[in-house]
Design a protein around this nucleic acid. Sequence first.
RNA 1: GCCCGGGUGGCGGAAUCGGUAGACGCGCUGGACUUAAAAUCCAGUGGGCAGUGAUGCCCGUACGGGUUCAAGUCCCGUCCCGGGUACCA
Length: 981
Amino acid sequence: MFQLLNVKNYSILTHFIYFRPFKIELFQKKSAWKTTINTAIMDYSPREIEKKWKKYWEENGIYEVSNESSKPKYYVLDMFPYPSGSGLHVGHPLGYIASDIFARYKRLNGFNVLHPMGYDSFGLPAEQYAIQTGIHPAISTEDNIKRYREQLENLGFSFDWSREVRTSDPAYYKWTQWIFMQLYKHYYDNDAGKALPVSHLTERLANEGNARINAVCDEDTPAITAAEWNAKTEAGQQLFLLKYRLTFPEESYVNWCPALGTVLSNDEVKDGVSERGGYPVERKLMKQWSMRITAYADRLLYGLEEIDWPESLKEQQRNWIGRSQGASVRFALEESPETKIEVFTTRVDTIYGVTFMCLAPEHELVARITKPEQKEAVEKYIKWTASRSEVERMAEVKQVTGEFTGSYCINPFNGEKVPIYIADYVLAGYGTGAVMAVPSGDQRDWNFAKHFGLPIAPILDAQKNMDEAADDTKEGRYINSGIIDGMSYDEAIPTLTRWLEERGLGKGKIQYRMRNAVFSRQRYWGEPVPAYWKDGVPYLIEESELPLLLPPVDKYLPTETGEPPLGRAEGWKYQGQYEYELSTMPGWAGSSWYWYRYMDPHNTEAFAGQDAVGYWKSVDLYIGGSEHAVGHLLYSRFWNHFLHDLGLVPEREYAKKLINQGMIQGVIEFIYLEKSEAAQKRFVSADLLGDYPDAEWAMIPVHVDFVSEYGKDHSHLNQKGIDQFREWRPDFRDAVFVTNDKGQLVTKSEVGKMSKRYFNVVNPDDVVARYGADCFRMYEMFLGPIEQAKPWDTQGIDGVIKFLRRFWGLFFNNQGGFEVSEEPPTREELKVLHAAIKKVREDVERFNFNTCISAFMIAVNELKKQNCNKRGVLESMVVLIAPFAPHIAEELWHQLGREGSVHRDASFPEYNPEYLKEDAVTYPIAINGKTRTTVDFPADASKEELEKAVRELEVVQKYTDGKSIRKVIVVPQRMINIVVG
RNA sequence: GCCCGGGUGGCGGAAUCGGUAGACGCGCUGGACUUAAAAUCCAGUGGGCAGUGAUGCCCGUACGGGUUCAAGUCCCGUCCCGGGUACCA
């Protein structure tokens, strides 16, 4: 119907009918009889087109890719999604659309492109759901995947679905377990510069002990002779080897929630209480599997040099690894000099400025050195810090807290007594958990000294204003500093280090901020660790017994004795007698190698065949969020380096280029929960918090669907919303809701992640149903640069659908009939086309997809103005737009009479600079930097000619009247600036 | 706190190498078409001042300084927002 009313606007096109090929003429005549029906069909209707071509692509396997091809290979990888119960949200496709455009672009440029998709399908939410409903996570995950697959297909991606992987599929996690076993079977040999089999280590231990073994191992690994090694029992030897293995069990701190009887992620802890239920959480030591990622710290650091990743992301990884050069120093306890406190410092030169020692509250010596007079205060303090997360402990710098233990240690350099404090700004997990405090040079130490009235001793003559703040300068000469008095920084460091090493009191040391990665989760829905315990010693199961399947359990909760859910599996014993490891692997296990599985997804003999890995080698383009900067993207590099050491993969770094997609954000709505131990929980309207001056609050996220005036300042839950919340969170069914005088519980709105956890997910299906996938794709690209974060908003999508209709309209005459002229295009038309080709090519290569859409709009507006319906222009436009709007392109390609698929059989157009040449350039003329006018000059005018011409211009003389021209700056093709004064 | 980003019209954004700030689109205003509405098409649209008008001038890229013939872009400082911070993935 729309086209009928448009007749007027297409009337100029009618003269082209004269050139129409006979076939179309016939069609046209026929259609004249039934104009209404035909024009209706000829409207742009994405729903029909998209359905038709999706089916065609699938039936003809258009996107399936072979591991054998004469074309050059190109691997485009997306970070695969966790299939959450709330479905795919509008943020996911942003990166997928970008990668899809690039994959299609590469195909049209003659590459054999691997572009797969799968699911990171182990994870906490499915387990949480299982706890609430009793439904096995495998079942809910399967449902979620089905939904994700539909949603993904709905968007017209060119994934080769025959290569789909799922991390929770036993056929997949068999190989995750296998890689774990390889890590267990290897240690890192510094001399070899890579991982070697543990058998190599045991052989050397048996022959010569460990004196000459230069390997990465636990800090507390003792020296051992061959005789001592050989004298050890089997169990003793195994325990000793754990100090070397790349994965091993050790005691680590976890967030323990006694009320829930389980370990919580940092993420599930909000303001010191559990997000679920609001119960207190404490830090507790637990035996956990750990990955010796620190062995690879240097390689992970230097490897960054060889990959094309965003500089900011590399910087984050560098900071995370945190390599720092310094020294370790051992301070003897005053009362038992044989016991030493070891500290690491990057400023050993400040050692004469040490006026106190600070231990982490969790430090192993604390209990032993605390004097009876201090006992009560220290224990109270330890209890308090245990309730605080690491982030909180580091974040609250203004408030100084700590306690004196009553004991002293001795500064090895000057023999002075140094009081020992505990303070929670010292973290147990970093360095040695002890800090030598130098208040004159470190601000946190300075704050602490001021608060406790401890001395602040200057050590450099260049230090200034130490009454007001610490001064961390390295300038000047040392004072009050014993053996380094009068020296400069550069002289002091080696002098002190030598002194320490000669006496065995310390040594130069490289410390990493990065810690070994905890690899256990006290959860059900993860890969079982393929190990069992015998007499307190872990052993691997046989490789032939893989995969070790997740056993069924009656409930997905910890056991009554506090064991992980796998402890509930009845009769689940190795060889019917030994207890399996009961923790499972973390979410990052399965995602640390998945790109190889896509290369050869059905291989039963290996994680991927050597020929497949040899062909695809590594990922050429990886797209995903920057929020994975130091998690997934670091762990996966670690595993890849390890697999490379074993000769299983060809490249040290698996992703040559990485693009960060910005997060599409949503609005998060919170309500305030009063923190208390009371049985009845109380929520208070955000505008009434002032009435409770002493209360502390936890912010509990609310499903945005319950919130009225969502995202606004006065967003709130009305009575219905409160009821919905109650029903949704039965753990708060009996809570009190304190509303304002309008009966509203005012919520707090924040812009943030769109995430299942914040219950603020917007999914793309509705948008696609209304506008079509092509429109959705182009709109998401049009929103802005791919790497930029932005809140979701559909305002503006009309511009894109209008554009698509206009583009479509170029191919149809005023009767609504398909009509394309075979006449050769004019020079003006070719100029429009080739300008678009140039812009789109350059911008796709730079991943500036938003400006590509602008370029399409400009081209289509221009072609329409010129009434262009020439095949010579439109056919190229169809191919040009194909990566962005694959369905409409395919439809028009076939309407143009072409066969096969535009996505397989076309070639991306090249531009011809001949068509873009201009005779004249419009120069802005600035006087003293302010643009006053523009003047056209011939494009080939020289600098001198331009300067001469511009001096003579009347407009210029108006501004220079009475003043002298001091300088004329001419930038050919750009601008001219005249400096007068 | 620490590390990494970002801040440009009413809104999303453009300006790719230091060279015409605001491309393209939304929204808004006016007009055409229509019985009407929708859709479509045409025109205008950063703010201010002056002018009947063509147009001219001033201000303007979070804020305060600096470098330069020229700064959204480079340097120093500040504020605000987002991501990460080791068991969300």
